[in-house]
Amino acid sequence: MQAEAKHRPNLLGAGGWFWAGNYKMERYLYTLHRVTGLGILLFGIFHLIETTFFRRQGESVWQMTTGFLKQPLFEVGLILVAFAFVIHALNGLRLILQEFGITLGKPKRPVYPYQDALRRKRGYTMLAIAVIVILLLVFLLNRLVGGG
Protein backbone atom coordinates (compact mmCIF):
# COMPACT_ATOMS: atom_id res chain seq x y z
CA MET A 1 0.00 0.00 0.00
CA GLN A 2 2.87 2.38 0.86
CA ALA A 3 4.77 1.57 -2.33
CA GLU A 4 1.57 2.04 -4.27
CA ALA A 5 0.88 5.39 -2.59
CA LYS A 6 4.30 6.67 -3.81
CA HIS A 7 3.02 6.31 -7.39
CA ARG A 8 -0.31 7.94 -6.47
CA PRO A 9 0.64 11.08 -4.52
CA ASN A 10 -3.02 12.22 -4.43
CA LEU A 11 -4.22 8.99 -2.81
CA LEU A 12 -5.66 9.91 0.58
CA GLY A 13 -7.10 6.50 1.44
CA ALA A 14 -9.95 6.19 3.95
CA GLY A 15 -8.62 9.26 5.79
CA GLY A 16 -9.66 11.35 2.79
CA TRP A 17 -13.31 10.61 3.59
CA PHE A 18 -13.02 12.88 6.61
CA TRP A 19 -10.43 15.46 5.61
CA ALA A 20 -9.24 16.46 2.13
CA GLY A 21 -9.05 20.24 2.33
CA ASN A 22 -11.70 22.86 1.81
CA TYR A 23 -14.82 20.80 2.44
CA LYS A 24 -18.36 21.83 1.55
CA MET A 25 -21.62 20.41 2.88
CA GLU A 26 -21.98 17.82 0.11
CA ARG A 27 -18.60 16.36 1.02
CA TYR A 28 -19.78 15.71 4.59
CA LEU A 29 -22.93 14.11 3.18
CA TYR A 30 -20.63 11.84 1.14
CA THR A 31 -18.79 10.79 4.31
CA LEU A 32 -22.11 10.26 6.12
CA HIS A 33 -23.35 8.18 3.17
CA ARG A 34 -20.30 5.89 3.37
CA VAL A 35 -20.40 5.52 7.15
CA THR A 36 -24.16 4.80 7.19
CA GLY A 37 -23.76 2.35 4.29
CA LEU A 38 -21.06 0.38 6.11
CA GLY A 39 -23.11 0.49 9.34
CA ILE A 40 -26.20 -0.88 7.59
CA LEU A 41 -24.08 -3.61 5.96
CA LEU A 42 -22.68 -4.65 9.36
CA PHE A 43 -26.18 -4.71 10.85
CA GLY A 44 -27.46 -6.62 7.80
CA ILE A 45 -24.92 -9.42 8.39
CA PHE A 46 -26.04 -9.84 12.03
CA HIS A 47 -29.71 -9.52 11.04
CA LEU A 48 -29.35 -12.28 8.42
CA ILE A 49 -27.70 -14.57 10.99
CA GLU A 50 -30.50 -13.83 13.47
CA THR A 51 -33.36 -14.40 11.02
CA THR A 52 -31.91 -17.52 9.39
CA PHE A 53 -29.76 -19.57 11.82
CA PHE A 54 -31.67 -18.67 14.99
CA ARG A 55 -35.20 -18.57 13.54
CA ARG A 56 -34.77 -22.01 11.98
CA GLN A 57 -34.19 -23.50 15.43
CA GLY A 58 -37.74 -22.90 16.59
CA GLU A 59 -39.80 -20.74 18.91
CA SER A 60 -37.80 -21.09 22.14
CA VAL A 61 -34.47 -20.15 20.50
CA TRP A 62 -36.17 -17.26 18.65
CA GLN A 63 -37.69 -15.91 21.88
CA MET A 64 -34.36 -16.22 23.65
CA THR A 65 -32.64 -14.33 20.79
CA THR A 66 -35.21 -11.51 20.60
CA GLY A 67 -35.23 -11.30 24.42
CA PHE A 68 -31.44 -10.90 24.41
CA LEU A 69 -31.69 -8.21 21.71
CA LYS A 70 -34.16 -6.18 23.79
CA GLN A 71 -31.34 -4.95 26.02
CA PRO A 72 -30.98 -1.12 26.03
CA LEU A 73 -27.64 -1.26 24.17
CA PHE A 74 -29.18 -3.12 21.20
CA GLU A 75 -32.32 -0.94 21.34
CA VAL A 76 -30.14 2.16 20.89
CA GLY A 77 -28.29 0.35 18.09
CA LEU A 78 -31.58 -0.39 16.36
CA ILE A 79 -32.61 3.28 16.49
CA LEU A 80 -29.22 4.22 14.99
CA VAL A 81 -29.75 1.66 12.19
CA ALA A 82 -33.20 3.14 11.46
CA PHE A 83 -31.62 6.61 11.32
CA ALA A 84 -28.80 5.31 9.10
CA PHE A 85 -31.32 3.75 6.72
CA VAL A 86 -33.31 7.02 6.37
CA ILE A 87 -30.14 9.08 5.82
CA HIS A 88 -28.60 6.59 3.34
CA ALA A 89 -31.84 6.13 1.37
CA LEU A 90 -32.72 9.81 0.96
CA ASN A 91 -29.16 11.02 0.36
CA GLY A 92 -28.81 8.13 -2.11
CA LEU A 93 -31.92 9.32 -3.94
CA ARG A 94 -30.37 12.81 -4.12
CA LEU A 95 -27.16 11.31 -5.56
CA ILE A 96 -29.06 9.24 -8.14
CA LEU A 97 -31.01 12.32 -9.29
CA GLN A 98 -27.73 14.24 -9.56
CA GLU A 99 -26.03 11.40 -11.46
CA PHE A 100 -28.75 11.61 -14.11
CA GLY A 101 -28.42 15.43 -14.10
CA ILE A 102 -32.03 15.93 -12.96
CA THR A 103 -31.35 18.29 -10.05
CA LEU A 104 -28.28 20.07 -11.46
CA GLY A 105 -30.02 22.58 -13.73
CA LYS A 106 -28.85 23.80 -17.13
CA PRO A 107 -25.14 24.49 -17.81
CA LYS A 108 -24.14 28.18 -17.44
CA ARG A 109 -21.20 30.22 -18.65
CA PRO A 110 -18.47 30.40 -16.01
CA VAL A 111 -18.77 34.05 -14.93
CA TYR A 112 -16.79 35.29 -11.91
CA PRO A 113 -17.52 34.77 -9.00
CA TYR A 114 -17.81 31.11 -10.05
CA GLN A 115 -20.58 29.04 -8.54
CA ASP A 116 -20.80 25.31 -9.18
CA ALA A 117 -24.04 23.54 -10.08
CA LEU A 118 -24.29 21.91 -6.66
CA ARG A 119 -24.37 25.24 -4.86
CA ARG A 120 -26.74 26.84 -7.38
CA LYS A 121 -29.17 24.02 -6.64
CA ARG A 122 -28.49 23.75 -2.91
CA GLY A 123 -32.26 23.94 -2.27
CA TYR A 124 -32.61 20.27 -3.29
CA THR A 125 -29.96 19.25 -0.75
CA MET A 126 -31.71 21.27 1.96
CA LEU A 127 -35.05 19.65 1.01
CA ALA A 128 -33.49 16.15 1.28
CA ILE A 129 -32.08 17.05 4.72
CA ALA A 130 -35.48 18.38 5.86
CA VAL A 131 -37.24 15.15 4.78
CA ILE A 132 -34.52 13.10 6.53
CA VAL A 133 -35.04 15.03 9.79
CA ILE A 134 -38.85 14.64 9.62
CA LEU A 135 -38.57 10.87 9.02
CA LEU A 136 -36.06 10.51 11.87
CA LEU A 137 -38.53 12.26 14.18
CA VAL A 138 -41.33 9.90 13.05
CA PHE A 139 -39.16 6.84 13.85
CA LEU A 140 -38.26 8.36 17.21
CA LEU A 141 -41.94 9.13 17.96
CA ASN A 142 -42.89 5.52 17.21
CA ARG A 143 -40.19 4.36 19.63
CA LEU A 144 -41.26 6.83 22.33
CA VAL A 145 -44.87 5.63 22.24
CA GLY A 146 -43.68 2.07 22.82
CA GLY A 147 -43.38 0.79 19.24
CA GLY A 148 -41.00 -1.81 17.84
Binding site: E59, A82, F85, A89, N142, V145, G146, G147, G148
Partner: peptide, 30 residues
Protein backbone atom coordinates in the same frame (compact mmCIF):
# COMPACT_ATOMS: atom_id res chain seq x y z
CA UNK B 1 -34.23 2.07 -5.53
CA UNK B 2 -35.47 -1.53 -5.08
CA UNK B 3 -33.79 -1.79 -1.66
CA UNK B 4 -35.25 1.56 -0.55
CA UNK B 5 -38.77 0.44 -1.54
CA UNK B 6 -38.70 -3.04 0.02
CA UNK B 7 -36.64 -2.08 3.06
CA UNK B 8 -39.01 0.86 3.49
CA UNK B 9 -41.94 -1.60 3.64
CA UNK B 10 -40.02 -3.80 6.10
CA UNK B 11 -39.08 -0.82 8.30
CA UNK B 12 -42.62 0.58 8.26
CA UNK B 13 -44.07 -2.75 9.43
CA UNK B 14 -41.36 -3.39 12.03
CA UNK B 15 -40.65 0.10 13.35
CA UNK B 16 -43.67 2.30 12.61
CA UNK B 17 -46.36 -0.06 13.97
CA UNK B 18 -47.70 2.55 16.41
CA UNK B 19 -47.53 5.61 14.18
CA UNK B 20 -49.15 3.73 11.27
CA UNK B 21 -51.53 1.81 13.62
CA UNK B 22 -50.82 -1.54 11.93
CA UNK B 23 -52.38 -3.42 14.87
CA UNK B 24 -49.12 -5.28 15.56
CA UNK B 25 -48.18 -5.04 19.26
CA UNK B 26 -44.81 -6.75 18.82
CA UNK B 27 -43.74 -7.34 15.20
CA UNK B 28 -40.74 -9.41 16.37
CA UNK B 29 -42.82 -11.95 18.31
CA UNK B 30 -42.73 -15.57 17.10
Amino acid sequence: VGTAVFLGIHMAVQHLNNVLATGELDPTSW
